[in-house]
Amino acid sequence: MLVKRSQAHKKREYEEQLMACMDSMYNLGYRLTLNREDANDLVQEAAMRGYRFYDKFEPGTNFKGWILTILRNLFINQYRKRKREPSKVNYDDLENFIGAPDIGGATEEIFGEELQSAIDQLPEEMRTALTLFYVDGFAYKEIAAIMRCPIGTVMSRLYMAKHNLKKKLLATMQNEV
């Protein structure tokens, strides 16, 4: 009876925390897979795996960070092999800082779609860093824990992601002209 009650309590506790993170999981899942059905499957598998290893989660620590780490690792191990990765960023011209284009007002609408497409074309680690920073509001340190990399790497991934987005948008602006 005692064992059953604690299992029920564990499940309830897990479900509550999980549902609170569902939007973040779905958003990251979509950014990783770039496909809504795959995102649903990935989130579902991550949820089941999280429950299986819930005993290893330390109460009081960052549950969202923990479950997003599981989701991302699942993507890397199972899904990434099946997906064609977007073309790699050319790091050679990273040396030259590109100033942000002057976007505002009516032009922002035009660039909205371009921006989404440009984000989708970034390599996975940059899409992940952008999503965790801009959508979930994680700090560099928290992103580093989820992505299992140094803080310096998080900074350079965000930097490179924005650099690449600027390049694409500037190219679009020149074409519009």
Partner: peptide, 12 residues
């Protein structure tokens, strides 16, 4: 601009 376009969608 990035923040405005990277909004969080609701999970279905």
């Amino acid at each position: 601009v990035i923040r405005r376009h990277m909004i969080q969608e609701e999970a279905p």
